[in-house]
Design a protein around this nucleic acid. Structure first.
Lengths: 206, 206
DNA sequence: GAAAAGAGAATGAATGTTCGCTAGCTTTTA
DNA sequence: TAAAAGCTAGCGAACATTCATTCTCTTTTC
């Protein structure tokens, strides 16, 4: 009896999801056809359907993978000493270095949120994960005296998330958009809202 | 010879565009079918095609209409005395009162920008119009002494446009999202960047 | 040799678009 | 001033194509 090879199955799923991501980035969730995805994955339709039962399952699988990645990345925030360095790295990863393809799929997801409840739920979960991680780390910083007592952590998190969304959107729209400097503006504002020292931390009167 | 009734033709086009907007908001550019749009417009396919030669022409027509509306709205900024009141009204109009349908189509447009050059060009034009209007009015304000000499107008415009994008995106994602208060945050930051009076406009010596 | 992995043609529904047609005008003609 | 002719607005069935999905079959693996 041939054993069920879970590792192999996971590998094949990864191949399919990667192919789907490229196709969705190129043509959108509705525009990309299963035939294209099969070709990109080097696989017949009949075989692909053994791994994902429908096109919708494929898109959900892709979004779930992004959710898992985001959860992993942002969870690291809790185990870090210097939050500004950590923020900077996260920002660079998601807003500058993340390939255009993934950003395109992200926007596609945003559009789909309005009409697909399943995807809306997944996206909500991602937002909550990010929110809670940011809130946690900023709250801890405030409790340690790294922020002014009047600093409104919730408002700061809202600002960061909203502005980051805007940056991603502008990046896709304008190929010449310089996300790097915009990120610095974003963090400068965040620090200002925290009421901490604007550049170096030379003003922490706890 | 029967006169060509331009007014009637424009009316019908409006009916079609309104119907298309509802369908696109509901199902996306690719998800909505011409049959649905025809039904929504109360019109047969054969007749609809007399006004728009293809589905793509329909989507472009819709985006062009939005461009015209934005141009009209933002051009008014130049003829106004109190820019903060004008900003506040514009923000309320576009970020709070604008119906969900139009915001949904806007996101759909953002997704389409990545793959359709025609739409990308239209969207770029809209961005330029908004940028130039904002830049113009802020530059004028600065020249009148309403902003600190070191205020970086270009950076302020970039901030406003990016943050507004983020706000729209969050509004679609979260039905309970309170855009009103977020707009105030946005303008407070803008005023801070201008280095002008923080709340009321008690310093207009023109 | 049995189960899993894979291939690829077949299927039926749905798509964007076109075509032939009619109804109701307005202009021309007799 | 009627009838004829010509135009635009509109209809809805029909078209070729494309789509997601399934079926049947072969190959590989243990």
């Amino acid at each position: 009896m041939p054993r069920i090879d879970d590792a192999h199955r996971t590998d094949r799923k990864t191949v399919i999801l990667d192919a789907a991501e490229r196709c969705f980035a190129r043509s959108g969730f509705h525009g990309a056809s299963m035939a294209q995805i099969c070709a990109e994955a080097g696989m017949s339709p009949g075989n692909l359907y053994r791994y994902f039962p429908s096109k919708e399952a494929l898109t959900e699988g892709l979004i779930e993978r992004d959710l898992a990645e985001a959860t992993a990345s942002f969870s690291l925030l809790g185990q870090v000493d210097d939050i500004w360095t950590a923020f900077s790295e996260l920002g660079r990863h998601y807003l500058v270095e993340q390939p255009r393809e993934e950003v395109a799929v992200w926007i596609e997801t945003m559009a789909e949120v309005s009409r697909n409840p399943q995807i809306a739920a997944l996206r909500k979960k991602t937002d909550e994960v990010i929110h809670d991680c940011l809130f946690g780390v900023l709250k801890t910083a405030k409790d340690r005296g790294l922020a002014a007592p009047h600093a409104d952590i919730e408002a700061i998190v809202q600002f960061m998330m909203t502005y980051a969304d805007g940056l991603l959107l502008r990046r896709v729209r304008d190929p010449h958009f310089d996300a790097s400097t915009q990120i610095e503006t974003m963090f400068a504002m965040t620090r200002a809202m925290m009421g901490a020292a604007p550049e170096a931390s030379n003003d922490n009167r706890n």
